[in-house]
Design a protein around this nucleic acid. Structure first.
Lengths: 352, 352
DNA sequence: TTGTATGCGTTATCAA
DNA sequence: TTGATAACGCATACAA
């Protein structure tokens, strides 16, 4: 039960002028007489006039709005990315409509549909865990809807992408474990359809192979990102006849429960098992032991994502060639992987 | 560069019928001839017609949309609340527009403004940390805009609210510490303008007073929810001439860095300092020691929040009297506060 | 400097 | 069962 909001028509009627004059005054067009303008402004102020954005957008056939769909805002990485994306978008005069897919393919397609109906001018998208079929995204591309994927993308799609070099990062992380004396290194991966997880798996294999430690994927277990599942996979891992002495996890969200499960089993970290992970959430430094993790330049990734989208949004002559930006990562070493106290010992192992 | 989307006008022209017929067919009105309907549907399907939501909303003067503003989606509590709110809203046929205030009063007022312009029909709001002046919310109330506050609300506002009994919960938590042998109990509170923090403070005082342990607020320190600040406050707390032997924190997000800082200082938890907190984030069970925390019924709170809003949205005769729902909490006891191994010893202390 | 008229894509109220 | 036509609130080309 609220009274009808005031419109430019109300103001025009009250001031006995035309609605176009009110419209122009409100928008600060230069041709308006100062007296007229101030009268309009005064009344608008007094009545707390709020322009109807729907009508505005409809009239201009533009919304200056971009749709952002992420799997889950409770993951630090995604909510941080959202903040960065929002800042960059606002800076460029765009506003943002946020949706979560809740890791569901169905929900993802529905959100795309909804945003499309809401006339967003472009999409920033990170695929859900359950998305293996990408027809819904392909449809956007076919329609020439500006689109940038980040982090969770799919291969073989003619879309702009922003990501880190997952393979290289995993290689780096795995080699760090090897340098710290690990010989049987396990990988708690994400679901098999996650490209990012597979790339990290590849980097993990690369490092093991390079150091003559690769023995098939017997130490690779897939997690579905739930706490319960990770606890189970970790226990399974530790019950292997030859349990691992090093662990790489695809995300801090996987590492936390994994470390918990190991500690419960009396496994000492890093002495029995050294752990390295991905994402470098702020909380990772607060765990005990603090967690070594690959950090991604979230701030820059958000800005770059928006930049690639703006390129498409503001292109005047036809569709633009998709562009992929690979951002650097950084290994942040903490207690969970620093096994050796002595640099000499470290060097000894490496040269042996 | 995308081609103009297809409209009902396009379909009408192609089928040589009127736009009203197309509109009716698309919306499944019963009076349409089956042949006409199927022809329309076929073409709509083929051309992937997407109704323009802006135009739809403008024409109906209804958006069936509610605006949700929270301080920060990276807090577990808020992103979980959002999920619950979204589910309940969708169920009731509403969609949700989400914004973050980023704990800024200015941003909060801007978001309200934006959502108002976007014609949301009601608000669900949790105030930012920096919001002490509530004129912006009062203005909504005056305009009879349906509104429900949750968790972070302000006193003396004629709005519907959903929250937990913070005072009682803090009392319960503090008494739990006392029962576990703590005698000098500190409270890491939130900013002084946070009502919720002050209520918890009151409950903390109640419990101390009841047990003859209250010695003024020398053990009360205020945090601003950043990690750095919490680390500092904790160190200050532990440097007191008589450091505390029990700690209550206003949020798990405060407890994590506090526990970290104490552990760094060699303080043993719970033996030297027992810790109890608020929110019961899923991660709290994974920390070592695992964190005792007050849990709030997030799922139910979200549903209740939406229920109270719907009551206002669907009221036909004038504004509705604001309603406040206080939800129950639960103390989830974990390692961080379980100091005594023996029940006999525990009973001994209590009866002494 | 201001007003008139038209359009944005839909819904809804009349007639037919 | 269908079709004109007028809203919805605003922007804008063109006239005045």
């Amino acid at each position: 039960m609220k009274s009808a909001p005031v419109t430019i028509k109300d103001i025009a009627k009250a001031l006995n002028i035309s609605i176009s004059t009110v419209s122009r005054a409100l928008r600060g067009m230069p041709e308006i007489h100062p007296d007229t303008r101030s009268a309009v402004m005064r009344l608008a102020e007094e009545w707390d006039y709020q322009p109807n954005q729907l009508a505005k957008n409809l009239a201009k056939s533009r919304t200056k709005t971009i749709g952002v769909i992420v799997p889950n805002l409770s993951y630090y990485f995604f909510s941080a990315m959202l903040n960065s994306i929002e800042d960059a978008a606002i800076q460029a005069g765009y506003s943002v409509l946020v949706c979560q897919s809740n890791e569901s393919y169905l929900r993802e397609t529905m959100q795309i549909q909804n945003l499309l109906r809401s006339q967003v001018e472009g999409f920033i998208l990170s695929l859900s865990r359950d998305t293996s079929n990408c027809a819904h995204v392909e449809r956007l591309i076919q329609k020439n809807v500006p689109l940038v994927l980040f982090d969770r993308y799919a291969d073989n799609m003619a879309a702009s992408k922003v990501m880190v070099d997952n393979r290289e990062a995993a290689f780096k992380a795995t080699e760090h474990l090897i340098e710290n004396g690990c010989r049987r290194i396990a990988f708690l991966a994400g679901p098999p359809q996650l490209v990012l997880s597979n790339q990290r798996l590849a980097g993990y294999r690369d490092a093991l192979t390079k150091h003559g430690l690769y023995m098939g994927d017997q130490y690779v277990f897939h997690c579905d990102y739930t706490q319960e599942n990770t606890l189970m996979q970790t226990l399974a891992l530790m019950s292997l006849p030859q349990p691992p002495d090093g662990l790489l996890t695809v995300s801090d969200r996987i590492a936390y429960p994994a470390m918990y499960a190991m500690k419960q089993k009396g496994v000492r970290i890093p002495d029995d098992v050294a752990v390295v992970s991905f994402n470098n959430e702020p909380l990772s430094s607060l765990f005990s032991p603090s967690l070594t993790s690959i950090s991604q330049p979230i701030q820059e990734m958000g800005m770059e994502t928006v930049r690639l989208l703006l390129r498409q949004l503001e292109a005047t002559d036809g569709p633009i060639t998709p562009e992929t930006t690979v951002m650097p990562t950084q290994l942040v070493v903490r207690e969970s992987s620093l096994r050796m106290k002595s640099a000499d010992f470290l060097n000894g192992v490496l040269s042996s």
